[in-house]
Amino acid sequence: MIKQALLGEFLYEAENTRKILKAIPDSALDWKPSEKNWTTTQLASHIAEVYNWYDSTFNLDVFDMGTYHYDKGDISKAENIVAKFEENVAKAQKVLENSDESTYFNEWKMEMNGNVVFPPAQKIQIIRGFLYNHLYHHRGELVVYLRSTGNKVPGLYGPTADDKM
């Protein structure tokens, strides 16, 4: 039952993520709002990468970032970031569909070389916070990046200022 709810949200929100990533023009990839922020490329690539964390989050009780390796691929073009997203989201969907609900309340934590990075919590909290809400947060940032670079923003939860009413 929990899995079906997670899967429904996953599918709906993956489509929203797809819309926002497809709205990025190559001309905006190097833009960042300040020296402290990521570029559009880095932010969009990170959004695509979050879907790569599903296997380690759903299927392990300890995610060791010290041994984690991820190939971002060629992120010099927006279409390549979208392609990486598509690859990662397909794998994430399979992980979610094949997940065992009986493990959702196991304790989960993230470590890096033996040091706790993300404190222990029930896996379901991590799924909602670390995977889902984390992604929505960064997607919101990407909306601001698009708007700040003069690009159109697709409607995710209804029309935007770019849509004609």
Rank of each mutant, 00 (worst) to 15 (best):
I47N: 05
L131D: 07
F63Q: 11
R147D: 11
N106S: 10
P154Y: 11
Q4C: 02
N98R: 08
Y104G: 07
K152L: 10
N80K: 05
Q93V: 13
L135S: 15
E111N: 01
M1D: 12
R128V: 09
K22H: 12
Y54Q: 05
I126S: 03
S76I: 05
H46K: 05
D162E: 11
N37I: 08
I20D: 04
Y70E: 06
Y136N: 11
A78K: 01
I124P: 02
R18Y: 10
Y68G: 08
E107K: 14
A14G: 09
P120A: 05
R139M: 13
H46V: 07
V153Q: 14
I81V: 07
M112G: 04
L29E: 08
E101V: 00
T40H: 03
T39I: 09
M112N: 07
T160F: 04
N59Y: 00
V143A: 15
I20F: 03
K109I: 03
W108Q: 08
D55Q: 14
A90T: 04
A161Q: 15
D26G: 05
G73P: 00
N98A: 15
E15T: 01
G114S: 02
Y68P: 00
F130K: 09
D64L: 05
M65I: 10
Q93H: 12
E35A: 13
E15Y: 09
S27I: 15
L29V: 00
L156Q: 09
E101F: 02
R139G: 03
L156R: 04
L60D: 11
D30E: 15
R18A: 08
S102G: 00
I75T: 11
S99Y: 00
M165C: 12
L135I: 01
R128D: 14
D61R: 06
R128N: 13
D55T: 02
L29H: 02
F118L: 13
R128S: 13
N98Q: 15
K84G: 02
A121S: 09
N52E: 10
Y132D: 10
G73Y: 02
S27A: 15
G114K: 04
T40I: 12
T149H: 12
K22P: 04
E35W: 03
L146M: 05
K19G: 08
S45C: 04
N88G: 00
